[in-house]
């Protein structure tokens, strides 16, 4: 089953959210409009709005309110992508030229800040202080996670706990917040929205672990970048941590730096793939996935429940 088919009952609402995104990013300056629409047209899975809408189905679902939260989360995600592209010096995203590549760093910073402001304006249509606290705390933690990612580059002495904390902040928290916020704004009981948070958190952890595995086993065509790019850039991910349990390989990995050639990298990547690191990483990813499914068992059954179940399963099996 394709991902979109798992929540086809939301198609009408998702289309309206897409329209609202276009309306929201409109600015009085034509260049800001052009850049914002350029980003929107690059597409994306809009998985955060999907989680918001599904979370909302566990309470009293008012589309107008769901729409505000969903748009806010997607805009915050978009703003962070624009700034991430400045951080990475990326020229392409989803096959399209990035904002910084086309208009420069300074312009990209302003567009990112503009989108962030637009997101908060949307969110301010919601008067629930808990919802704001959840989102604000998530934004701060995500930033701290990104700073950690930079400080941990080429640090091969880090442990599994540090890696898990980093991917929690990098990926899991925003998915957890998306699931929870939909339910909070829909007035679902605390016991329900907290379970949705944990569901999103575990799914997010599993998703990022899979992403980190695919970086080694995916093809350049599937990944849109050379295999092993994370390690080349100094990001010590789960397969690397497991592979370093083998002493000889550990010595090779620890020599990786900014100047490592692609031939040397290919050798290290082959070494990692020959160990059981990928298998062990999958096992941990599966454990998180199972935790997500266990959490789901504690939630009332409805069509959103089925969709969340299928999405979790899909994320566990995805190949790129």
């Amino acid at each position: 089953m394709k991902l979109k088919a798992m929540y086809s009952f939301l198609n009408g609402d998702l289309n309206r959210i897409e329209e609202q995104l276009k309306i929201t990013v409109q600015a009085s300056d034509p260049l800001v409009n052009e850049a914002s629409l350029h980003l929107l047209e690059a597409g994306g899975k809009r998985i955060r709005p999907v989680f918001v809408l599904l979370g909302g189905q566990f309470g009293t679902y008012h589309f107008e309110q769901m729409k505000r939260v969903a748009v806010a989360l997607e805009l915050i995600h978009m703003a962070s992508l624009v700034h991430d592209d400045v951080i990475d010096g990326a020229t392409l995203r989803r096959g399209k030229e990035t904002i910084q590549a086309r208009w420069g760093d300074r312009f990209a910073m302003y567009v990112g800040d503009y989108l962030f402001a637009r997101a908060l304006e949307q969110m301010c249509e919601i008067n629930d202080p808990i919802a704001h606290q959840i989102l604000a705390n998530t934004i701060v933690e995500v930033c701290r996670g990104e700073i950690e990612q930079i400080s941990d580059k080429y640090r091969f002495d880090q442990n599994l706990r540090r890696y898990l904390q980093r991917i929690k902040r990098k990926t899991a928290l925003l998915i957890a917040a998306s699931c929870q916020l939909g339910a909070v704004v829909a007035g679902a009981p605390e016991a329900v929205h907290k379970k949705l948070y944990w569901f999103g958190y575990y799914v997010g952890m599993s998703f990022q672990i899979t992403d980190d595995i695919l970086d080694f086993i995916g093809t350049e065509k599937q990944l849109g970048k050379p295999a092993g790019s994370d390690l080349s850039q100094g990001n010590v991910t789960l397969p690397v941590l497991y592979a370093m349990e083998e002493r000889t390989l550990k010595e090779q990995i620890m020599k990786v730096n900014e100047h490592t050639t692609s031939r040397e990298m290919a050798h290290v990547i082959d070494g990692i793939k020959r160990t059981n690191a990928i298998e062990k990483s999958y096992e941990l990813g599966d454990r998180y996935l199972q935790k997500a499914l266990d959490m789901l068992q504690k939630l009332p059954r409805n069509r959103a429940w089925t969709a969340l179940y299928n999405i979790a399963k899909y994320i566990g099996k995805r190949k790129y």
Partner: peptide, 25 residues
Amino acid sequence: VLAGDLYSGLYYEFLAKRHDVSLIR
């Protein structure tokens, strides 16, 4: 880049704790 993002997040977090949605807006 990230320091600026963090300070923006801190403003939102601070006013959210104060329940001051009107000033956030």
